[in-house]
Each structure stands twice: as structure tokens, then as C-alpha cells.
């Protein structure tokens, strides 16, 4: 093992540690799950403890796309465009059962899971999910960010 390999591994770990505590989210809030998202983001549950306290309302400044709420087929191209505008590295969280599978909206209007149009990193089921499960999902996302190979 050369010096460069050892150095790269440690830099990966350092970058992963930094990135997992500086999550700038883009909340794509379309439906009732937004209420639970706000409850999680506010002081009682406080996502700022996880370094995710500052939502950015421009996809160009965001790292994590939070898709919060039902996505209709009419909305799907908009969501895809927001995802495409985000800069690498980027992650996607499916918040609520509608974004995971379409939920009980098994009809002509609703996308049956946003993973049909985007790559999803973490699924948070629930209708809506409790803040505890959102925080659990957020920590799983942190683990994934820290464990993954860092590109720079």
C-alpha cells in the first residue's frame, strides 16, 4: 500500500464526516407531509442538531432533495428538473408513503413512487411519518453519506 492510498482513505473519511453534518436540504413540499416536515424542522425536534437546519430554496445550493408529499404525473417533470439542477454530490430522501410508493393514491394522477423518476437514497414511510422516523431517516442518510466514496 502506497502513501497516496492511505492518504486518500483518510481524506474520504474526513470529507464524509464534514458532509454528513452540513446537509443543506431542498424541501420539495407538495402535500400534507409538509406539516410533519415543519414539525421536525422546528425547535422541538430540531434537525439543526444533525447539521440539517438550513433549508435552501434554490436547488443549486442544496445537497439533499427532500421530496415531501404526493407527486402527480403533471408535477413529475418539474421534480426531475429540480433534481437535475442540483450540483453533485446530491442525495434524495422520499418523505412519506406517497413518495415511496404512491400510497393509497392508486389512480390516474399520482406517480407510483418517485423512484420511477429519480434515484432515491432513503425512504421514510408513514402517512405522515412521525418526526422520530424522520430523524431516524436523516441519521441513516448521514451514515450513508459518511460511508460512501467521496468525490471531490
Amino acid at each position: 500500500m502506497g502513501l497516496a492510498d492511505f492518504f486518500t482513505t483518510k481524506l474520504d473519511a474526513a470529507l464524509g464526516w464534514a458532509r454528513k453534518y452540513s446537509i443543506f436540504q431542498y424541501p420539495f413540499v407538495t402535500a400534507c407531509c409538509g406539516m410533519e416536515y415543519m414539525a421536525t424542522a422546528c425547535s422541538h425536534y430540531d434537525v439543526d442538531r444533525f447539521g440539517a437546519g438550513l433549508p435552501r430554496f434554490s436547488p443549486r445550493q442544496a445537497d439533499v432533495l427532500f421530496v415531501v408529499g404526493t407527486i402527480s404525473h403533471k408535477m413529475a417533470p418539474v421534480l426531475r428538473r429540480v433534481y437535475d439542477q442540483m450540483t453533485e454530490p446530491k442525495w434524495v430522501v422520499a418523505f412519506g408513503v406517497c413518495t415511496c410508493t404512491g400510497g393509497f393514491y392508486d389512480n390516474y394522477a399520482t406517480v407510483q413512487g418517485i423512484d420511477t423518476i429519480l434515484p432515491v437514497d432513503v425512504y421514510i414511510p408513514g402517512c405522515p411519518p412521525r418526526p422520530e422516523s424522520v430523524l431516524d431517516g436523516l441519521m441513516k442518510l448521514q451514515d450513508k453519506i459518511a460511508a460512501g466514496r467521496q468525490r471531490y
Binding site: 413529475a76 417533470p77 390516474y108
Partner: peptide, 8 residues
Amino acid sequence: SRRQPLIG
């Protein structure tokens, strides 16, 4: 069950 997605 008929869907008409714009993308995907």
C-alpha cells in the same frame, strides 16, 4: 389502472 406519465 391506466396511467399516462409524462416521464418515467
